[in-house]
Design a protein around this nucleic acid. Structure first.
Lengths: 209, 209, 209, 209
DNA sequence: TATGAATGAGGTTTCATTCAT
DNA sequence: TATGAATGAAACCTCATTCAT
């Protein structure tokens, strides 16, 4: 059939397998949800067989948790560093933060994770708690710091920073979710640049002293 | 068997059966997701047996679609009527609209539906499209009308109403989603009144001419 | 295909199903051992489908335990009653006891259970303990009572009754085991009547004062 | 890598590998039964990897048969020699034979094999037949010779030697089986010395002319 | 010779669906 | 109309076996 019949039935790729499996699993979990994702499809997507998956993960649940954890840890540091080093107007800082989050989320797979956690939090409450503590609350805290900085410098009017942080974070979250759930169905594509510009514009005008 | 068994104490309200089943299904679908919800549990929750479900719905998928549709239709009219009849300042109209949506969603089960659609849109693209067309786009259109009314009356500054409508809708959607996914896990309860107040405050200041 | 095409796909037999399943399971577990017995075969042997088994038993392990327990409980009473009511020579009592045990074991399925417990005690230690306490030790105690009765009445010479009880019980046990493991292979059929007669003869001569 | 790597500290004794594997397999097969024993565990127990096993045995079944055969062959010769050379009272010969068998079985692993064959005879009938012919029937024949010798010399009363041989062998077999199945669970430990003394005592008294 | 990553058939278990009652 | 026992496809998971290294 094949020209030289030299392709081995499989390769030995111990180092890379976990990553490949995690990437495949992330994609399918996000697309279909936890329960509707079959491990055989994850394996196929990663180019291995069903059994191979079990060399690296104990069970479907363990794979799921690994997917979430693997994509959750390497985040947020960037945003915090940005706040620390900024010395211009706080409205500019806020703009940078919002745009930076969106770019970071797009790069890292966090958009998919966010959708996944929202959908599966009922079935994995401990993961939901972990997600909230590691991701959401750190992001929230960063936003609160920015708002308080703006008020302290007289650039923002007096605000309820703790209520407002979630109001401002919400559109970013929703953009991630839309991107993950509607975009794949080709429903109502969103112009994310215009969307973010509007968000920033609303904030800048709505917060200024 | 009994002598004069007129008027049984408990009627076999077959009229109500579908509604009871839909309510039970909504609750479980929202809690656990589509795939993880067992029809036997839906039936038990509604107080009937597994077989009975099939007298009213053809399949699990059909039940799911009915759940979504049943909770989607009786909405939005109220919001549209409110916009038509309002004659005060558009900022007040916007405030009423936001608060009205949240209350309506709370009353009607739309919060749960929103979470459900987000989670399952990948598995039910045609439902996702239906949901988008029937709900989201109508809500969006209403919001656009309000924004344009404000601009026309000189109460709002010039805006990209189409980009902004989604930015303003997002925090309301996210509040619904948080309420459905995190609240059941007792994670980070949100003070929805303060949250909505902040949203309205941000809009009023951010939009005014 | 069939003449009148009237045979329903299945019958509703809730009362009898568990018994039928237990009987089928006993046979196959004894023949093949626990691990080598497939639940599909158990179901087929009982004339039902795989899924039906799970209406009555939670798991393979639970089925196994039920099999053992169901066949263990209704035993031993007979033997104990016999000892209480006997008033002749103790050698005659011993003869009756030995023959009665063999007949009882043949009737009740205990022969198979004995083989099963021996084979699977390593995998189900708690069951092995249960079996030992409910069956073996009660049988042993009965045998000790008989031996002590014989010594007390001067019919048997002085003996170490506790060591001897197991020596006398052993040939009966082995007869059960041979019957279950070799007979199905048509290896070396044993004449159980002659075997038991020899055992009784050996005891009668070996015990008498 | 090392300069003068003569004489490695640990030799790669490929001569001993099969024996080590057989010993590991015997232990695990006896403990868990054939089907519940994983080849990976056998390999680990023998200190090699899974693949290595297949350099020495074709399959699990082949390993199992080798285990049984390897432990079956080097037996029985001793007992037969003892009978040939004995010239004292036959009761003393019988005592020696019984004690010798127990010691031999303890030494050789035959106890475990006996349990294994009993448990797996249904799944390996040809092995059961082999076992019966090589082991059981040779042992039986030896016992018959002893009984007939005793009768011929007027030391034993007239007996059905063929029925009796199995009655006398049974307690020895059962002692092996208890030792293998109940002792590992720490259930009802048996004092084998007292047990064997009782057996011998019963025989001596029960057989004498 | 030795390893252990990879495979895939086959087992246990679940659950949407059917249908005799 | 209502029930729930029965079904069987399909999922998760195991492990005997193969083979590139």
């Amino acid at each position: 059939m094949s020209a030289s019949a030299k392709e081995p039935r499989w390769e030995r790729r111990k180092q890379d397998r976990p990553q490949e499996l995690l990437a495949a699993a992330l994609q399918l979990f996000v697309e279909r949800g936890y329960a509707a994702t079959r491990l055989e499809d994850v394996a196929a997507q990663a180019g291995v067989s069903k059994g191979t998956l079990y060399l690296y993960f104990d069970s479907k649940e363990s794979l799921f948790k690994s997917v979430v954890r693997a994509h959750m840890l390497p985040l947020l540091d960037e945003a915090e560093a940005r706040v620390d080093s900024h010395d211009g107007h706080t409205a500019d800082l806020l703009r940078e933060l919002i745009l930076g989050w969106w770019q970071g989320a797009s790069r890292s797979g966090l958009k998919g994770i966010a959708k996944l956690m929202l959908a599966e939090s009922g079935n994995f409450p401990e993961l939901a708690r972990f997600y909230h503590e590691e991701i959401t609350s750190r992001g929230d805290a960063t936003l609160v710091r920015v708002l308080e900085r703006g008020m302290a410098r007289g650039e923002f009017r007096p605000l309820d920073a703790h209520a407002l942080k979630k109001v401002i974070a919400a559109p970013i979250m929703m953009l991630m979710l839309w991107d993950q759930s509607l975009a794949p169905c080709a429903i109502a594509p969103i112009d994310s640049a215009a969307y973010l510009a509007s968000l920033i514009d609303l904030c800048v005008h709505g917060l200024k002293a």
